[in-house]
Computed example of a mutant assay.
Amino acid sequence: MIPPKDTPERQAALDRLTERARFVRLETVRLSRVAGAGHYTSSFSAAELFAALYYAVLDLRPDEPAWPDRDRFVLSKGHAAIGLYPVLADLGFFPPSDLDTYTRLGSPFGDHPDMKKVAGIDFSSGSLGHGLSIAVGMALGARIGERPYRTFCMLGDGELHEGQVWEAANAAGHYRLGRLVAIVDRNQLCIDGFTDDVMSVEPVEDRFAAFGWQTHRVDGHDLDAVLDVFDALPDDPDGPPQVIVADTVKGRGVRLMEFNPDWHVGNLVGADYDDVIAELQAGLQPMEPMEAAK
């Protein structure tokens, strides 16, 4: 439940979500150390979105992971699973200590999520471009089965280079899947560099709107604004699908990683590890202008 604005309950929720976003970043760093490398920056850009979704928006039952009426979440940018696993453990889908085996031989927790091995995972993602198509299928399944659940799909902005994304967007608009919500993590970077240098994705909102989607844009690190956007989503099963374009910073929270394409995958060791942990424990600091940012 999302508390009303400008109430003590809302502020308490924002404080908790801020702490949970920091938890996502800290656990991403810890698990990367267990694995010997990790997708730090892709998880950091989505930390506030993960916190808002799992602690305020999604209707789930951790003690009943296969509950038929649960909301579905498809992490299409599956390489950010390192930031999602700790949230699922924190909610009680599995013991937090299980994460100590992350990427080790025989562990259910791989670099990309496996729905057959990890409770709370609705789709085995990793090959970019497929998630929105799966989410469209889930939303159609809800309609056919007369189920009330909503389907959420998080995509990376580099993933928008994939043609299958736009085929799925067209289908969702055609079938008016009003309980389908796409979230674009618009962090400006993909593995090959700045997203728009590889292939322009703007104007993102207009492109989705052309396929019949209702669009929203928000600062993806402003939890108050993020909650407002989620709270304002219409619950019309036959209305237009919804897309939230969340403007984020890849690597947000660690200055040496922010807008730095060298940290798409990396490994922190020694003093660098300690310094990053200390920076994250101090909380998000105001952004400074960066020449690399576009």
Score class of each variant (00 low, 15 high):
residue 1 M to Y: 14
residue 2 I to F: 02
residue 3 P to S: 05
residue 3 P to L: 09
residue 5 K to S: 15
residue 8 P to K: 08
residue 23 F to W: 11
residue 25 R to C: 03
residue 27 E to R: 15
residue 30 R to S: 06
residue 40 Y to W: 10
residue 42 S to M: 12
residue 42 S to C: 11
residue 44 F to L: 08
residue 45 S to F: 05
residue 49 L to D: 10
residue 58 L to Y: 01
residue 61 R to F: 07
residue 66 A to D: 12
residue 67 W to R: 03
residue 72 R to W: 02
residue 76 S to L: 06
residue 79 H to L: 05
residue 83 G to E: 05
residue 88 L to H: 06
residue 89 A to Q: 04
residue 94 F to K: 08
residue 97 S to V: 15
residue 100 D to A: 15
residue 105 L to Y: 09
residue 107 S to K: 00
residue 109 F to H: 11
residue 111 D to Y: 13
residue 111 D to H: 12
residue 112 H to V: 07
residue 113 P to H: 10
residue 113 P to D: 07
residue 119 A to N: 08
residue 119 A to V: 08
residue 122 D to I: 01
residue 122 D to M: 04
residue 123 F to R: 05
residue 128 L to R: 03
residue 128 L to V: 06
residue 128 L to D: 00
residue 128 L to C: 05
residue 129 G to A: 02
residue 130 H to W: 09
residue 131 G to S: 02
residue 136 V to M: 00
residue 136 V to L: 05
residue 137 G to R: 14
residue 144 I to Q: 15
residue 144 I to P: 04
residue 152 F to C: 10
residue 154 M to V: 09
residue 157 D to T: 11
residue 162 E to T: 03
residue 165 V to I: 15
residue 167 E to S: 04
residue 168 A to L: 10
residue 169 A to G: 07
residue 170 N to S: 07
residue 171 A to L: 14
residue 172 A to T: 09
residue 178 G to Y: 07
residue 181 V to N: 03
residue 186 R to A: 10
residue 189 L to I: 12
residue 189 L to V: 12
residue 193 G to L: 10
residue 195 T to N: 04
residue 196 D to Y: 11
residue 198 V to F: 13
residue 200 S to W: 10
residue 201 V to E: 06
residue 205 E to M: 07
residue 206 D to Q: 15
residue 209 A to F: 02
residue 209 A to Q: 05
residue 212 G to M: 00
residue 213 W to K: 03
residue 213 W to C: 01
residue 217 R to C: 09
residue 224 D to Y: 01
residue 227 L to Q: 01
residue 234 P to M: 09
residue 234 P to C: 07
residue 236 D to L: 11
residue 238 D to G: 15
residue 244 I to E: 04
residue 245 V to E: 10
residue 246 A to K: 03
residue 250 K to P: 00
residue 251 G to R: 07
residue 252 R to H: 13
residue 252 R to S: 02
residue 258 E to I: 02
residue 260 N to L: 04
residue 263 W to E: 01
residue 264 H to V: 04
residue 267 N to P: 04
residue 270 G to D: 08
residue 273 Y to N: 06
residue 273 Y to H: 15
residue 277 I to F: 14
residue 278 A to Y: 10
residue 278 A to R: 13
residue 278 A to N: 02
residue 280 L to E: 08
residue 286 P to N: 13
residue 288 E to N: 14
residue 289 P to Q: 04
residue 291 E to W: 14
residue 294 K to A: 13
